[in-house]
């Protein structure tokens, strides 16, 4: 884990990277309703779509979900939780940890998207975010 930048949500550089990645995600996948990068402890880093209040709330809830997913995976001894999907009637939420970062990406798609595609674009965005932070740090 990267502890060098403990407060991603206060780091203008990381916030800018996150904004850029989210723009790209939207370009790539029009069924995206909104998406948020958040710190492990539930602070919003950057969001696409949604209003401020909703994004902050999603960030907190996604952080709880992530931790509960990790707790279940740990208890069942099935390794680390890779991603979490909530499938609902009119859409779904996918969330995934940004590799090597204390950060999570949560994205909400409408039901028109296939889970497979949504999952692959979220994975791509998460790894783009990781690559960008690394590049900035180098």
């Amino acid at each position: 884990m990267n502890n060098a930048a403990p407060s991603a949500h206060k780091d203008p550089h990381i916030i800018a990277c996150a904004g850029e990645v989210l723009e790209g995600l939207n370009e790539f996948c029009r069924s995206l309703r909104y998406a948020t990068f958040l710190t492990d402890d539930g602070f919003e880093v950057a969001s696409f779509g949604g209003d401020d209040k909703q994004n902050r709330r999603v960030a907190s809830m996604a952080s709880s979900m992530q931790a509960l997913g990790d707790a279940v995976a740990k208890d069942l001894r099935i390794g680390a939780a890779e991603y979490i999907i909530i499938a609902a009637e009119t859409g779904y939420v996918i969330q995934m940890r940004v590799p090597d970062q204390l950060m999570v990406l949560a994205a909400h798609f409408d039901a028109a998207e296939t889970v497979g595609k949504a999952l692959s674009v979220v994975r791509l965005a998460a790894s783009n975010m990781c690559a960008m932070i690394r590049r900035e740090a180098a």
Binding site: P6, T39, D41, S63, S64, L68, A71
Partner: peptide
């Protein structure tokens, strides 16, 4: 069962982790 995450709000409580669920 714990749901600790890396704590980024050191001003409120200066400790490594905080409960998120």
């Amino acid at each position: 069962i714990r749901t600790e995450a890396n704590n980024t709000d050191r001003e409120t409580a200066d400790k490594d982790t905080t409960t998120v669920a």
